[in-house]
Design a protein around this nucleic acid. Structure first.
Length: 135
DNA sequence: AGCCTGACTTTGT
DNA sequence: GACAAAGCCAGGC
């Protein structure tokens, strides 16, 4: 039945990277951070690059989030990048899903209404990691 | 080490 | 309100 309980995993990430974790291959790169947050996005909800960036502590580095998403498709498990939109709720990255309509298809499949490449009720289904994960 | 790019955001005109 | 430019940071070459 249910999956995990009150998740709220909230990854450590990015804070104490200064600590050399032996010969760790990566020690949580900025990208991994983004992937994890993206995977935490509830079904039927969406968020923005800036929100994730801010949650990671990089406020203005929303670009990096999107850039990370570019490689997200190659990550395992796959990252639901279709739940990440720009601050306007527009499917800016839909063109990167291989099929331009795939992103919208996925969103609608989750109950998210999309019109003209823009998510309707974006402010209502908006999922803010800083609010949802940071109690 | 340095330059360029990028699925964004904010600010100014 | 629409358009243009700058800022931001990490990865790739």
């Amino acid at each position: 039945m249910n999956k995990k309980k009150a998740v709220r995993k909230k990854k450590p990430a990015k804070k104490a990277v200064s600590k050399p974790i032996a010969k760790r291959k990566d020690s949580y790169s900025f990208f991994e951070n983004v992937y994890e947050v993206a995977r935490l996005i509830p079904r039927g909800r969406v968020t923005s690059y800036g929100a994730i960036a801010k949650y990671l502590g990089s406020g203005q580095s929303a670009r990096m989030v999107g850039y990370a998403m570019n490689a997200a498709a190659t990550q395992i498990p796959p990252v639901p990048a279709h739940r990440v939109l720009n601050r306007n709720g527009m499917l800016t990255g839909k063109h990167h899903f291989g099929l331009p309509d795939l992103m919208q298809k996925l969103l609608e499949k989750e109950g998210v209404k999309v019109e003209k490449d823009t998510v309707k009720n974006f402010d209502k289904i908006f999922w803010n990691p800083s609010t949802e994960l940071s109690i």
